[in-house]
Amino acid sequence: MSEPHIERSVDRSHMQVSDEVAIQIENMNKWYGQFHVLRDIDLTVQRGERIVIAGPSGSGKSTLIRCINRLEEHQQGKIVVDGIELTNDLKNIDKIRREVGMVFQHFNLFPHLTILENLTLAPIWVRKTPKKEAIDTAMHFLEKVKIPEQADKYPGQLSGGQQQRVAIARSLCMKPRIMLFDEPTSALDPEMIKEVLDTMIELAEEGMTMLCVTHEMGFAQAVANRVIFMADGQIVEQNNPHDFFNNPKSDRTKQFLSQILGH
């Protein structure tokens, strides 16, 4: 299904995973009212790790990564990000959010601001970066996602793929240590998926810690060092991509893989 998007083989030799723990989730549970969305999640993410989370819709994979920066609140268990535990303490939440970038399915750019303003807003207001420096950083990342010429346009004037690349650049401007991707290519036309995935691969090559909810299995094979399969709010199976795709253990995983890779 997704292989065609990834043309080059990714050199993984320098993509080192350190021993340092970036995210520690212990025995975490979450309910929406009566509905038990996440059950007993245990997950440790090392710094520099690139994790792809896959699974059928409604399996709780988006909810899981949204818990990591407190867009969703968990009711039980423990989440520690970058050494800070997520509690109701707003200061801790803001601290974590500054270090964790997030890219959304629907981009969520700010339509009333130009691209450049979208990129400089958080650095200026949250990190208190001087304006000139924030602009320099923004232009640097816009060049990196290959659309510096769009800096003065408004988001509505860009294509979906361009908007998503801007969204990635916007997160990077905060110099995050961890990046979360919530189905970043699901809302894109097929011909735009590649440009976004290329940007993400580049990011992976630089050693960014990444958690990525996606259906792009080609991307998973190319850059992930761990694939997590979720179903019904549980982590069913996790493995390195080679073994995950060639030698799935549980029936649920096999069924899922046959469905998405089958045709």
């Binding site: 867009l71 959304f104 949250v126």
Partner: peptide, 13 residues
């Protein structure tokens, strides 16, 4: 859209 609130939150505002 809810996404505007979420994007603002995620950026640490």
């Amino acid at each position: 859209p809810r996404g505007q609130y979420e994007a603002a939150d995620a950026l640490g505002l």
